[in-house]
Design a binder for these strands. Structure first.
Lengths: 226, 226
DNA sequence: GTGATTGGTTGATATGGGTCAAGGCGCTGC
DNA sequence: GCAGCGCCTTGACCCATATCAACCAATCAC
């Protein structure tokens, strides 16, 4: 017995699979298995070989690079609905990052074989995989732009802008995880992250309360200079 | 009359196309056109819409991001045989970078329509496109690692290591373009680039003569600390 | 040949963000 | 209730790399 939700039902709601016939989906499901991970658990290590890709059904996962003296650099924070590890499936290379659960999470792992098989049968699926990889690539170019061309304050503002649930004039962002992890994602130390929030607050541009950030004037913040 | 080489012949030697039948190739060729560009010429601007991808037949192209006060950040330097612009073809987004010829170059432009068409017919082709995108993605992750986790000296050494034509103990790298462009690629100012080369030289680890860098001891350089 | 332009080097100085250290606040466990 | 631990903040200081400025060498225009 298990609390297993219906894998096929889950997949059928995801963009990557939602145009598949039941028969196609069934083939995928046959090569999919669930993986329940606890907060802090490592999903795969850097340099592990890849034989499929993962989907976050619920929970939260980070991709990160090990850095000096046990520290890390967070590359991506992934919430429910996102997939990861596709790219390594198509190459003969091991994972260049490791994956760790930020909270208790339910993942699906889809075997490379099923994906390769389906690519051969379904050009639409192939195009979706291409689109997915293209999105990731685009995101990484944005990241490179941010890391190399923008100041720490600009990176933080950019992050808020992406995650904000735009209301009218005032907007709110709920940070999806700890400030330390987000700081790392933005290539900042927690200290600097804290100071920037503090600085923007004292200028009246934002208000911070725990993980909730209120943006007084979106346009003003977007145009912030230094 | 033209000095036009045979497009089909060129394509047939590239990994992406070399398993195609003549018929398949002919379809691609029908949607391919040459583009001769002079040194310094812009191939496309950031935010231009994409309707295909490019191949460098000969010459050299850089992808770059505009930065403050007319400067730029070089994202990638591409030599003959490389392709670029694939990812944007699969999304509804404009180019996130601009492309400029670093030397007089001959490019091929392959229309998105031909690619999409061929993806529908040839799963092998699709897999190769996926592999190509995956390689780019992997490269960008490496870049992110370099920018965020490594010192300027380590980035420069890493660059030399990738480009070296490994001999026995001693190795040689011929910088593929000006030091200024490579510096930008590594997210360094020309001044810092120059100083690092100088510094490594004075430690006897490398010898620099114009664009030729000789590495005395590859293992020693690879293990260099700061 | 001469001036102008491009690419590279060198030195002096500035600074953004990191590092180190200490302390606070709010959990969770018992 | 309080010990202990994560997470966050604050302050003092430091350092890697950028910036600014001057200059040199090679190449190019004509």
């Amino acid at each position: 017995m298990s609390t297993t939700p219906n894998i096929q039902a889950i997949l059928s709601h995801l963009p990557l699979f939602n145009t598949m016939t039941n028969e196609e989906l069934a083939r995928i499901v046959r090569h999919t298995h669930e993986r329940q991970v606890n907060k802090g658990e490592i999903i795969f290590q850097k340099d592990d070989p890849s034989n499929g890709f993962y989907l976050v059904v619920h929970g939260q996962v980070k991709l990160a690079l090990p850095a000096a003296n046990g520290t890390e650099k967070v590359v991506e924070i992934m919430n429910a609905g996102r997939s990861f590890g596709e790219a390594m499936m198509f190459m003969e290379k091991p994972y260049p990052v490791y994956a760790q659960a930020l909270s208790d999470s339910l993942l699906l792992h889809i075997d490379r074989a099923a994906v390769f098989d389906e690519i051969g049968r379904d050009a639409g699926f192939c195009r979706k995989m291409l689109a997915g990889l293209s999105m990731r690539l685009h995101g990484l170019v944005q990241d490179v732009e941010a890391y190399t061309l923008r100041s720490s304050t600009q990176r933080l503002i950019g992050y808020l802008m992406n995650d904000l649930h735009e209301k009218n004039g005032t907007a709110t962002v709920s940070l999806p995880t700890s400030k330390t992890v987000i700081a790392s994602r933005l290539n900042l130390t927690p200290e600097t992250f804290s100071r920037i929030l503090n600085n923007l607050s004292s200028q009246g541009l934002i208000a911070v309360e725990g993980r909730d950030v209120t943006i007084r004037d979106v346009a003003l913040l977007r145009g912030y200079d230094p």
